[in-house]
Simulated assay, not measured.
Amino acid sequence: MRRILTMSLGIFALDQITKLFVVELLDLKTRLAIDVLPPLVNFRMAWNEGINFGLMSGLEVDAMRWFLIAVSIVISGWVLWWGRNFSSWFGAFLIGCIVGGALGNTVDRVVYGAVADFLNMSCCGFRNPFSFNVADIAIFIGAFGLVLFSERLNRRA
């Protein structure tokens, strides 16, 4: 469990530091767009009040916000409980990615009222309309890794 908590804290810190730097220090929240390595990597400010890709963002904002905060905390707790017996660093990393990412986005909902998304990647004539953040990447890596490798991860009896 210690490994999982360490990984979760690391992912959470990385997410919050990148958001602080890009959204606050580079002032993306007012500038709205910064080209970093166009067209591959750009910062585009997006406030996600819903779930992935803004789904359910048209519903009552404040009620949805607190509902999603509660769901995130419950799911994070369940994932911690479920993965508590993973004995490998890889398993702890995957669980830590999910929990740290989910809690990073939860803090955004508490502080800003929405998740701060800012990374945008496009390529080869395709303009991606969506933005995401480090927490989203971590959650994807953790969930995808668990789907692929959960049967092979070392678990203590």
Results as ranks from 00 to 15, higher is better:
R3V: 02
R3S: 14
T6R: 13
T6H: 11
A13N: 00
D15L: 08
D15F: 06
Q16C: 10
I17P: 08
K19R: 02
D27E: 15
D27K: 15
K29I: 03
A33T: 10
I34V: 14
V36K: 11
L37A: 10
V41M: 00
N42E: 03
F53K: 07
F53P: 06
L55P: 07
L55N: 09
G58A: 12
E60Q: 15
A63F: 12
W66H: 12
V71H: 07
S72Y: 01
I73F: 11
I73N: 03
V74R: 05
I75D: 05
S76E: 00
G77R: 14
L80A: 14
W81L: 12
W81S: 13
W81M: 11
R84T: 06
N85W: 14
S87Y: 05
S88R: 11
W89Q: 04
G91R: 09
F93S: 03
C97S: 13
I98T: 06
I98G: 04
I98H: 02
A102Y: 01
G104A: 04
G104L: 05
D108C: 11
Y112I: 01
N120Y: 11
S122F: 02
C123L: 15
F126E: 11
N128E: 02
N128S: 06
N128C: 05
V134N: 04
D136R: 06
A138Y: 01
F140L: 10
A143N: 01
A143C: 10
A143D: 00
L148G: 12
L148T: 09
L153Q: 10
R156S: 12
R156I: 07
